[in-house]
Design a protein around this nucleic acid. Structure first.
Length: 835
RNA sequence: GCCCCCGUGGCCCAAUUGGCAGAGGCGGUCGACUUAAAAUCGAUUCAGUGCCGGUUCGAGUCCGGUCGGGGGCACCA
C-alpha cells in the first residue's frame, strides 16, 4: 500500500512507552497544538482550480442561539466525516459554514437586554465559530456568511423583487394565523396543532394584508421532481413532503342555485358518488356563504360566523363527531337528477381549500354522515357496501368500492368507471370538469418583526406598490434597539418614522416603506448558492461558480427541516431555474438526516433543558472522544441516548490507538511487501470495505472495522513483530481512516509515524486487490439446513470436489439416511437434504 | 382514523442482502500489574432474533397476521 509518505527530517521518535491514558491536560494540549498547525497549513481550503474533481458537502447552517450543543456535535461530526472522506479520496471539497442569523430570539434578547439584536447575534456567532474550530470541523472558513449581513440580504431582497416581477409575489388580505405572544403572523407550516411552533401559544385568526409567495404554482414540480431524489433522500422525508403538498385528483361540479343565476362550484375526489349528494355545505368564512344566505337566515348566519371566527383552532377541530351549522335557506339544483338539495354552512368545510364548498354524500363520507344525522338530512346509498350494512342506520359511512346503484349510466360500475362516467355526463352538460387540488397553500412570508430582511417595497399614495430599484438595495434595517423593538400590535419598523418615510422611487412624492420583514426561511432558501461565491458583488451568486459546485452532493441536517426548509429551498431552486440563473431542478442531490441526542429517553433541547453540556463533555473526554462517540453510537439517522454510550470507551480506544502508533518500529517509507500476509490482507480488506461503508454513511460499522484492525495490529506487535512492515501499513491506514472522525488523534498518530502533517491531506490508502481476495474460505456443511460441519477450502474448489469433501466430513452425522437432494453454493455452502 | 419506520445477548449495535446468529463497543465477572486503588492489559459470561403462522433445502432477512415502540398527516371533501 502506498500512502505517499512524506518523511520529514524532524521525525519524531515513534517508539514510546507512555502507558497512561491521555488525561484532560494531555488532550487539551494536543488540541491546542494542532489548531495552531492547521491555522498555518489550512488543510481544508478549497482549491477550486479544476485540479481535482469537485464535491459540495453541506451541513445545514446553524442558528446562533448560544454556544454549540450536543445536537450540533452530532450533526457536525457526521457532516465532517462525509467531507473529510471525500477530501481523503482526492476531491476538491467545498465544506462551508455560515449562520442563519436573522430571527426572533435575537430580537427578544435585545428587548430584555436593552441592546441591538446584532450585538447578541454576532457575539453568539463568534462563540460558535470558536467552538467549531475547537471541534475541528473541516470548514473552509473563507466561505463564511451571515444572512443578517446587508451584503447578504441585499440579494435576498433582489431575489424577492425578481420573483415579484415574475408574478410569484402578491399581497393580499386574508385570514391568517396570528400568534398573540410573538405578535406576528405565522406560515401554515409554523402552526403545529393549533399552536405557535415557536412559543406554543394558541394561534388565532386575523384578517391582515400580507405578502405571499406563489409556491402552489410549483406544486406539481415539487411533487414530480422527487423522482430525482428517490433513493438518495430518506424515504420518510419524501413521504412527508408528498403528504404536505397533498395532491388530490377529482373533479369540479357546478350546482345552479334554484331560481337564480348563481352557481355553486364544489370540488370532490369522489365524482362517482354524485348521485348520492343530498345537500351542499359552504365554508362559513367564504364570501359565497355570505352572498347565498337567505334574508330570513341572516341573523342566525351572522351569529354562527362570529362564533366560528372567535373559536380557537382546537374548538374547531373537535375529536367528537358532533357537528354545527346553519341552513342558508336556499336550494341548489342537482346537475344530473334535477333534484333540489338544501345548502348549508358549517365549519367543517374549510374556506381555504378547493372552492370552499362541498357536495355532501353522507352515505360515503363520514363527516357528511355525521352532519346529516345531526340535522336529519337524507342519506342515499349509491355504492353497494360489501358488508351489506346500510350507512343510514349504522352511522358508519361506506368508503370502499362496490357496484354503483341509483347512479344512472354509472349503475353497476366500480369507483373508477363510475367517476369517469359521471365526469363525462357533467362535461356534456357543461356542469363540471376533472380537477386537481392541493393541500399546500401559498407561502406567507411577511412577519411583523424587526430582525429580518426588510421587504424592498415602497407604498405610494399615487403609484401604489413600488419596488425599490435594484441600485438602491439593500434596504437596510434602521438602528433600533431595546424597548423600541417591543411588540405594540404593529411592526417595530412602522414606529421608525425616519426610516419609514421615503420618496416614491417612481414619482418622487411622499411615500412609506413596507414595514414587514421576511420569514427567515426566505433567507435560508438560497444560502447554499451564495456559498459558491460568497463575496460576489454582481448578483446573488456567480453563475459560473454555481455551475462548478451545485447541486450540493451531500446535504446533512436534522429531520425537523423535512418539510419547511427543504420544500422552500426546492421551490427557490425551481424559480431560479425558470429565471435562467441555474441549470438544475433540485438543489440537494442527497440528504442525510442525523438523529437527535437524547438522555434517558428524554429530548435534549432548549425547551427541555440542556441535560448534557457539550462544553463539559469536551473538557472531560476531549473533542475526539466526543466525536467518536457520536459516530460510533449507531446508524447516523438513529437518536443517540447519551446514557447508552460512553465517551470513556471512545477515549480508551483512542489512547490505545495512539500507543499503537508509538509502537511501530519499522521506519517510514518501508515497502510493505513481504510483511505478514494475514495482517496485510486484513488491512486491505478493511480499507476497501471502509470506502463502501463511508459512502453508505455507515460510519458506526466503519469504526468497528477500524477497532478490529487496531486489535489485529496490536496482537502482531505483542507477538514480537513490531518491526513487521505490515504493522506500519496497518497503522498508517488506521491513521488516515480515523482522520474522518478524530482529527487530533489522527494527526498525532501520523506525526508519530514520522510523517509531515497534515494527515487530512494524506490521501486514502490504495487497495491491492490481490490482498483483498481471499485464497481460502470456510465452507459450511449442513444437513437439512442445520450446521453439521466446516471445511477450510480454496475459494476456487470445484463443486463436485466440494460436495465429496463435505459428504466425507459429515458421513457420521449422515449415517445411512438417504440424501434426496444436495444444494451446493460453492465455495460457501453445501447442504444435504435427507428424507 | 389514515400512512410510514423499527423490534437481535443486561445495554448500544453488526450479520457478505435467503446461507455458520456475533464483528465492535458498553456493562458484569475473573485474572495480571500495584502495598492498595485507579488506569492499563488479558480472559470470560450472556440471546436463537417480540409473538403466531406461511414460503423455502435453508428465514434475523421474504409473505400474512398479531403485540409493542417511534414518527408523519389529520374535518383538505
Amino acid at each position: 500500500m502506498s500512502i505517499s509518505p512524506v518523511v520529514g527530517d524532524g521525525g519524531v521518535d515513534p517508539v514510546g512507552d507512555d502507558n497512561a491514558t491521555v488525561g484532560a491536560d494531555g488532550f487539551a494540549a494536543i488540541e491546542a497544538k494542532w489548531r495552531a498547525i492547521w491555522d498555518v497549513l489550512n488543510p481544508y481550503a478549497v482549491a477550486d482550480d479544476g485540479s481535482r474533481e469537485r464535491k459540495y458537502v453541506l451541513d445545514m447552517f446553524p442558528y446562533p442561539s448560544g454556544d454549540l450543543h450536543m445536537g450540533h456535535a452530532e450533526a457536525f461530526a457526521l457532516g465532517d466525516a462525509v467531507a473529510r472522506y471525500w477530501m481523503q479520496r482526492g476531491y476538491d471539497v467545498l465544506h462551508p459554514v455560515g449562520w442563519d442569523s436573522f430571527g426572533l430570539p435575537a430580537e427578544n434578547a435585545a428587548i430584555t437586554r436593552q441592546a441591538h439584536p446584532a450585538d447578541w447575534t454576532y457575539a453568539n456567532i463568534e462563540t460558535q465559530a470558536e467552538s467549531f474550530r475547537r471541534y475541528a470541523v473541516s470548514f473552509d472558513w473563507s466561505a463564511r456568511l451571515h444572512t443578517s449581513d446587508p451584503e447578504y440580504y441585499r440579494w435576498t431582497q433582489w431575489l424577492f423583487l425578481r420573483m415579484r416581477e415574475r408574478g410569484l409575489v402578491y399581497r393580499q388580505e386574508s385570514a391568517v394565523n396570528w400568534c398573540p405572544v410573538d405578535q406576528t403572523v405565522l406560515a401554515n407550516e409554523q402552526v403545529v396543532g393549533g399552536a405557535c411552533e415557536r412559543c406554543g401559544a394558541a394561534v388565532t385568526e386575523r384578517e391582515l394584508t400580507q405578502w405571499f409567495l406563489r409556491i402552489t404554482e410549483y406544486a406539481d414540480r415539487l411533487l414530480d421532481d422527487m423522482a430525482q431524489l428517490r433513493g438518495r433522500w430518506p424515504e420518510r422525508v419524501l413521504t412527508m413532503q408528498t403528504n404536505w403538498i397533498g395532491r388530490s385528483e377529482g373533479g369540479y361540479v357546478d350546482f345552479a342555485l334554484e331560481g337564480g343565476s348563481e352557481t355553486i362550484r364544489v370540488f370532490t375526489t369522489r365524482p362517482d358518488t354524485l348521485y348520492g349528494a343530498t345537500f351542499l355545505v359552504v365554508a362559513p368564512e367564504a364570501e359565497l356563504a355570505n352572498k347565498l344566505c337567505a334574508p330570513e337566515r341572516r341573523a342566525e348566519f351572522d351569529a354562527y360566523v362570529a362564533r366560528v371566527r372567535a373559536g380557537s383552532d382546537a374548538e374547531r377541530h373537535p375529536a367528537s363527531t358532533s357537528r354545527t351549522g346553519v341552513d342558508l335557506g336556499v336550494r341548489a339544483v342537482h346537475p344530473l337528477t334535477g333534484e333540489l338539495v338544501p345548502v348549508w354552512t358549517s365549519d367543517y368545510v374549510l374556506a381555504g381549500y378547493g372552492s370552499s364548498a362541498i357536495m355532501a354524500v353522507p352515505a360515503h363520507d363520514q363527516r357528511d354522515l355525521d352532519f346529516a344525522r345531526e340535522f336529519g338530512l337524507p342519506v342515499r346509498t349509491v355504492v353497494q357496501p360489501d358488508d351489506g350494512v346500510d350507512p343510514a342506520s349504522s352511522g358508519i359511512a361506506y368508503t370502499g368500492d362496490g357496484p354503483h346503484v341509483e347512479s344512472g349510466p354509472a349503475d353497476g360500475m366500480d369507483i373508477g368507471d363510475a367517476s369517469a362516467s359521471v365526469l363525462r355526463e357533467l362535461a356534456e352538460l357543461e356542469a363540471g370538469e376533472p380537477g386537481v387540488q392541493y393541500r399546500l397553500r401559498d407561502w406567507l412570508v411577511s412577519r411583523q418583526r424587526f430582525w429580518g430582511c426588510p421587504i424592498p417595497v415602497v407604498h405610494c399614495p399615487s403609484c401604489g406598490e413600488v419596488p425599490v430599484p435594484d441600485e438602491e438595495l439593500p434596504v437596510r434595517l434602521p438602528e433600533l434597539r431595546g424597548a423600541e423593538l417591543a411588540p405594540r400590535g404593529k411592526p417595530p419598523l412602522a414606529a421608525a418614522e425616519d426610516w419609514v418615510n421615503a420618496a416614491c422611487p417612481r414619482c418622487g412624492g411622499d411615500a412609506r416603506r413596507d414595514t414587514d420583514t421576511m420569514d427567515t426561511f426566505v433567507d435560508s432558501s438560497w444560502y447554499f448558492l451564495r456559498y459558491c461565491s460568497p463575496g460576489y458583488a454582481e448578483g446573488p451568486f456567480d453563475p459560473e461558480a454555481v455551475r462548478r459546485w451545485m447541486p450540493v452532493a451531500q446535504y446533512v441536517g436534522g429531520v425537523e427541516h423535512a418539510i419547511l426548509h427543504l420544500l422552500y429551498a426546492r421551490f427557490f431552486t425551481k424559480v431560479l431555474r425558470d429565471m435562467g440563473l441555474v441549470d438544475f431542478d433540485e438543489p440537494f442531490q442527497a440528504l442525510l438526516n442525523q438523529g437527535q441526542v437524547i438522555l434517558n429517553g428524554a429530548a435534549m433541547s432548549k425547551s427541555h433543558g440542556n441535560l448534557v453540556d457539550l462544553g463539559e463533555q469536551l473538557a472531560t473526554y476531549g473533542v475526539d472522544a466526543v466525536r467518536l462517540t457520536m459516530i460510533f453510537a449507531g446508524p447516523p439517522e438513529d437518536d443517540i441516548d447519551w446514557a447508552d454510550v460512553s465517551p470513556a470507551g471512545a477515549s480508551r480506544f483512542l489512547a490505545r490507538t495512539l500507543r499503537l502508533a508509538d509502537d511501530v518500529a519499522c521506519p517510514p517509507g518501508t515497502d510493505a511487501e513481504g510483511g505478514d500476509r494475514q495482517l496485510r490482507s486484513l488491512t486491505h480488506r478493511t480499507v476497501a470495505q471502509a470506502a463502501e461503508l463511508a459512502e453508505a454513511h455507515r460510519f458506526n460499522v466503519l469504526v468497528a472495522r477500524l477497532m478490529e484492525l487496531v486489535n489485529a495490529a496490536r496482537k502482531r506487535i505483542d507477538a514480537g513483530s513490531e518491526a513487521d512492515p505490515a504493522v506500519r501499513e496497518a497503522v498508517e491506514a488506521v491513521a488516515v481512516m480515523l482522520s474522518l472522525f478524530t482529527p487530533y488523534t489522527a494527526e498525532e498518530m501520523w506525526e508519530g509515524l514520522g510523517h509531515e502533517p497534515s494527515v487530512a491531506r494524506a490521501g486514502w490508502p490504495t487497495v491491492d486487490e490481490q490482498l483483498v481476495a481471499r485464497e481460502t474460505t470456510v465452507c459450511i456443511v449442513q444437513i437439512n439446513g442445520k450446521l453439521r460441519g466446516r471445511l477450510e477450502v480454496p475459494v476456487d474448489t470445484a463443486e463436485a470436489e466440494l460436495v465429496s469433501r463435505a459428504s466425507e466430513q459429515v458421513a457420521a452425522a449422515l449415517g445411512d439416511r438417504e440424501v434426496v437432494r444436495t444444494v451446493a453454493k460453492p465455495p460457501r455452502l453445501v447442504n444435504f437434504v435427507v428424507g
